[in-house]
Write a protein that binds this DNA or RNA. Structure first.
Length: 809
DNA sequence: CTAGGGTTAG
C-alpha cells in the first residue's frame, strides 16, 4: 500500500499511475521506436515510485539496455532490500561502473549487512573501480547506523588520502557519522571548517547531531544559522529541532518552529507530526498535542504513544487508558513503546486487575520478551505490592540492565524490604552491571532507612569513583542517609556542595538536625529555606515540630503548627499531632495536650495516645494516664508498653495493688514486653546483644570490661537507677541486671574493639533505658569516647559527659 | 547511483 499522508507523495503517486498505464498500453513497436533515453526515464520513475516488479517487466521488454538501465535495476532492488535479486542483476551487468558498485554497496549498507557492504567496498577498489563520493556516503551511513566509529575513522582516513574529503556528500556523511557515534565535537569541527557549499542535508546532519547529543541550545542556534543563510529546512530538519525544544521544554520556540512547518508545507509529514505531538505532550499542553494527533491523516502508533505518555506524565490516567483502548478499536497495533507508558499509569493498587489485563495483552501481541516491557511490568507489579508477580517477570529477563535491577530494588524498598533491596543491589554489581544515578539514589535511601552507614559510605565512594555526575536525587539521598546515620557533618558537607536544592533537600537536613538533638539548627535551616523561596511541605513540618518538641520550644512549635495550617494550607496528620502533643505534654501543659488531642481533625492513632500517656507518666497524672492506657489496650492489644507504664506509675506512688492488677491483666492476655536488643556493625558484621546475653564468642572479655567500666564510673559519681531494674530480686541482683543491659554490653564491646578516636555507633530497637543513658554520659567522659546511640526515637551523641538530646528523651 | 527524521521503562 502507498503511504497517503504526504501531499508530495500523492503527487508522485499520480504520476506513477500514468506511467503504469503508459507501460501497459505501450506496444512492442512503440517501445522499439522510443528513444532509450525516454524508456530509461520511465524505468527510473517506476523504480522510484516503488513499482520494481513493473519496472522489471519493462526492463525485460527493452530492446536496448544501456549502463543506466542496468544501474537503475540494481539500485532499485538494492534500495528495497531485495538484495539477492540486486546481486543477480549486478552479476549480469555487462559493463559495471563505479555507479553499479555504489548502488549495491549502498543497498547492503542500508539494510544492515554492513560486513557485505564493506567487503564489496574493498572488492570494488580491488577490481579497479574508484569509489565515488556517493559510495563513501553509503559506507559512512552504515557506520552511522551501526555506531562503527573505528570503521568510520578508517573511511575518513581514506577520504583524506584520496582528496574526497572536500566533497559535500563525504563531509556530510562524516558529520553524521561522528554525531551518531556521540563524537559531536569532531562533527562540529568538520562542519565549522567546511570550506563552502553546506547544503540543506549538511545543516540537517549537524542540527540532528546536536539534538541527538542532547545539546538543545546548539541545535536551536544551528537551526537559526541555517535559516539566516537562507537554506530551507525540510521534513528531515524539523523533527530534530522539535526534539530539542521538547528536551528543554521550550514550547515558545517550539510554537515558532510549528509556524515554519506550516509555512513550508511540511505539516503533513508523519515524522514532523509525531515530533509535534511529543513536544506539546511533554510540555504539558495536552490540548495542542491532542489537536496535532487528531489532524494526522493516518492512525499512527508513535504519535499515540507520545500522547499516552503525555497523559501519564501529567497525571491523566483515565485519558491515557481510554486512548490506549481507542488505539485498539482503531486497529493501531501497540508496540514496545506503548506498553511502558500504559503500565506506568497502572502502578497504584487500585489497578491490579487492569494491570493483569495489560500483561495478558503484552503476551497476546507478542511483546513478552521485550526487556523494556518486562522492566515496566516488574515495576508495576512491585508498586502494586505484588512482589511475587514482579519477581516472576524479573526472573524471565535474560539480559538484565540497570533498569531491570532498579525496578527490583525500588520494588523491594517500596514494600519495606530494604535488606532485600541491598541484596539485589549487590547481586547486580556481581553481574557486572554498573549502577547509575537512579539506583544509587534508591539504594542510599534503603541505607538511610536501615541506618547502614558502612554500606552507604561504600555506595557513595563507588559513585564518586564512577564518572557519573551527581544528581539532585543522589545528593538528597546522601543528605538523608548521613543524617539518618547520625553523621550531621557529612550531611552538611553534601548539602553545602549542592548547586540546587529543593524542598526534599532542606527537609532531609531539618529532620536530620532534629533527630540528632540540634533542634535550634533545624529552626534556623527552616528560616533559611523560606528565605530562599522554597515552600515547606507535609514532611518538612513533621521535622520542624519534632525539632521543637525535642528542644522544648513550646511557643515556636505552636507558631509553626499554626502557620502550617493557616499559611500553607497543609492538613496536619497524626505525625504532626504526635509532635505537638509530645511538646505540650512534656512541657507540663497536659490539659492543652488533651485539648489538642480532642480537637484532632484525624482519628488519633496509637502513637498519639502513647506520647500522651508518656507525658501523663512524666507529670504523674494517673487519671489521664489511665484514660490513655484504656484506649491503647483497645488500639494495640498486644503492646506491652502501656501496661508497663501504667503499672510503673502505680508503683511509683505506692499503689502496689493497682500495679499488680495491671501486671496480672497483662499476663492474663499473655502479652510480653518486646525484647530489647542493641547491635553494632564492625567490618561488615553485625554484633547483636540481648540483655544479660552470653552468646557472643567474646563474652568473657566483654563481661570483665563491663566490671571495669562500672567500677570507674561509680567512682566518678554514677549511681545505678533501680527504677529501671527488674522488680522481684534483691538490690545486688538488680544492679548486675542493670549492668548487663543490651546497650551496655554493646558499648563494652565497642570499647574493646573500636579503635580510640572512632565513634562507637550503637543501635537499639527500643527507647534507651534511663539508667543506661546516665551511665553512657559518664562513660563518654571517662573514656573520652564519642558514643552514638540510635534508639527508636532519635540519636544520642554522648560526648564528654553530655548527650545531644539534652536529657529530653 | 545521492548523505539527513519522530515515541520507550526505574
Amino acid at each position: 500500500m502507498y503511504k497517503l499522508y504526504s501531499l508530495r507523495y500523492m503527487g508522485l503517486l499520480q504520476k506513477s499511475n500514468c506511467c503504469q498505464n503508459w507501460c501497459r498500453t505501450l506496444s512492442r513497436k512503440a517501445l522499439a521506436e522510443s528513444s532509450i533515453l525516454d524508456t530509461n526515464r520511465y524505468l527510473n520513475e517506476l523504480v522510484t515510485s516503488g513499482q520494481i516488479d513493473e519496472a522489471r517487466k519493462l526492463f525485460e521488454r527493452m530492446p536496448h539496455r544501456d549502463e543506466f538501465s542496468w544501474n537503475t535495476m540494481v539500485s532499485g532492488y538494492a534500495d528495497l532490500g531485495r538484495l539477492t535479486e540486486a546481486r543477480k542483476v549486478f552479476d549480469e551487468t555487462p559493463n559495471k561502473s563505479s555507479i553499479t558498485w555504489s548502488a549495491l554497496v549502498s543497498g547492503y549498507c542500508k539494510h544492515g549487512y554492513e560486513t557485505e557492504g564493506f567487503q564489496l567496498f574493498w572488492e570494488m577498489r580491488y577490481e579497479g573501480h574508484k569509489p565515488s563520493q556517493f559510495t563513501l556516503g553509503s559506507v559512512l551511513r552504515v557506520c552511522s547506523v551501526k555506531g562503527l566509529l573505528l570503521k568510520g575513522k578508517q573511511i575518513h582516513g581514506y577520504a583524506t588520502k584520496t582528496n574526497f574529503d572536500t566533497k559535500v556528500f563525504v563531509i556530510t556523511g562524516l558529520i553524521d557519522m561522528y554525531a551518531k557515534c556521540f563524537c559531536v565535537m569532531d562533527a562540529e569541527l568538520l562542519f565549522e571548517e567546511m570550506p563552502s557549499g553546506r547544503n540543506h542535508v549538511t545543516w540537517t546532519a549537524m542540527i540532528n547531531g546536536y539534538s541527538l547529543n542532547g545539546d538543545a541550545h546548539k541545535t536551536i542556534r544551528c537551526f537559526r544559522g541555517m535559516r539566516a543563510v537562507g537554506i530551507q529546512a525540510n521534513q528531515y530538519t524539523f523533527p530534530g529541532v522539535l526534539t530539542a525544544c521538547t528536551a528543554v521544554f521550550d514550547i515558545g520556540f517550539g510554537v515558532q518552529v510549528h509556524g515554519c512547518i506550516v509555512h513550508g508545507g511540511f505539516e503533513a509529514n508523519v515524522f514532523v507530526q509525531s515530533a509535534l505531538v511529543d513536544l506539546y505532550a511533554k510540555c504539558g499542553d495536552l490540548r495542542s498535542a491532542r489537536n496535532a494527533l487528531e489532524l494526522m491523516e493516518v492512525d499512527h502508533v508513535v504519535s499515540s504513544n507520545s500522547m499516552i505518555l503525555g497523559y501519564v506524565r501529567n497525571g491523566f490516567v483515565e485519558e491515557a487508558l481510554s486512548l490506549f483502548k481507542e488505539m485498539h478499536e482503531r486497529n493501531i497495533g501497540p508496540n514496545d513503546y506503548t506498553y511502558p507508558s500504559v503500565l506506568n499509569c497502572l502502578t497504584s493498587k487500585k489497578y491490579v486487575r487492569k494491570g493483569q489485563l495489560v500483561h495478558c495483552l503484552v503476551i497476546k501481541t507478542g511483546f513478552k520478551g521485550y526487556k523494556i516491557v518486562s522492566n515496566a511490568l516488574v515495576d508495576m507489579y512491585a508498586k502494586q505490592g505484588d512482589l511475587s508477580s514482579a519477581f516472576k517477570v524479573f526472573d524471565t529477563i535474560l539480559d538484565r540492565d540497570v533498569i531491570s535491577w532498579t525496578s527490583a530494588v525500588t520494588g523491594c524498598a517500596h514494600n519495606g524490604f530494604h535488606e532485600k533491596a541491598l541484596k539485589f543491589f549487590s547481586e547486580m554489581r556481581n553481574c557486572g552491571v554498573q549502577p547509575d544515578q537512579v539506583i544509587t539514589s534508591s539504594i542510599l535511601s534503603s541505607c538511610a532507612e536501615l541506618a547502614l552507614l558502612k554500606f552507604g559510605q561504600e555506595v557513595h565512594a563507588n559513585f564518586l569513583k564512577s564518572s557519573l555526575g551527581s544528581s539532585l536525587s543522589v545528593d538528597n539521598s546522601l543528605v538523608t542517609m548521613y543524617a539518618n546515620c547520625g553523621c550531621l557533618e557529612e550531611a552538611n558537607i553534601v548539602f553545602n556542595s549542592m548547586e540546587t536544592r529543593n524542598v526534599i533537600t532542606w527537609t532531609a537536613l531539618i529532620v536530620g538536625c532534629a533527630q540528632n538533638g540540634k533542634g535550634k539548627e533545624s529552626l534556623e535551616l527552616y528560616n533559611e529555606m523560606i528565605l530562599s523561596g522554597i515552600k515547606p511541605d507535609f514532611i518538612t513540618f513533621i521535622g520542624l515540630l519534632f525539632a521543637c518538641s525535642h528542644a522544648g520550644l513550646v511557643d515556636q512549635g505552636r507558631k509553626h503548627f499554626d502557620s502550617m495550617v493557616n499559611v500553607y494550607g497543609i492538613r496536619p496528620g497524626p505525625d504532626h499531632y504526635t509532635c505537638m502533643i509530645d511538646l505540650l505534654g512534656r512541657a507540663g501543659k497536659l490539659h492543652d495536650a488533651e485539648k489538642l488531642l480532642n480537637e484532632m481533625s484525624v482519628e488519633p492513632d496509637a502513637t498519639v495516645w502513647k506520647v500522651f500517656l508518656a507525658a501523663c507518666k512524666e507529670h504523674g497524672n494517673i487519671d489521664l494516664a489511665k484514660k490513655a492506657a484504656l484506649v491503647l489496650f483497645k488500639l494495640t492489644p498486644q503492646d506491652a508498653v502501656p501496661y508497663v507504664m501504667l503499672s510503673n506509675m502505680y508503683s511509683a506512688v505506692g499503689k502496689w495493688e493497682d500495679a499488680a492488677a495491671v501486671r496480672k491483666l497483662m499476663k492474663s492476655k499473655s502479652i510480653s514486653k518486646e525484647p530489647g536488643y542493641s547491635w553494632l556493625e564492625m567490618n561488615g558484621k553485625v554484633h547483636r546483644f540481648m540483655s544479660e546475653d552470653r552468646s557472643h564468642p567474646k563474652m568473657d572479655q566483654i563481661y570483665s570490661k563491663i566490671g571495669e567500666v562500672m567500677a570507674l564510673i561509680k567512682k566518678a559519681g554514677y549511681v545505678p537507677d533501680m527504677n529501671f531494674a527488674l522488680h522481684d530480686i534483691n538490690d545486688e541482683g538488680k544492679e548486675l541486671g542493670l549492668a548487663y543491659h543490651s546497650e551496655k554490653l554493646a558499648v563494652a564491646f565497642g570499647f574493646l574493639y573500636v579503635p580510640q578516636g572512632v565513634p562507637i555507633r550503637i543501635y537499639k530497637n527500643l527507647r534507651v533505658c534511663g539508667d543506661c543513658h546516665a551511665a553512657m554520659k559518664f562513660m563518654s567522659k571517662i573514656y573520652h569516647r564519642h558514643i552514638i546511640l540510635r534508639d527508636s526515637k532519635c540519636f544520642h551523641h554522648f560526648r564528654e559527659g553530655t548527650c545531644s538530646c539534652g536529657d529530653y528523651y
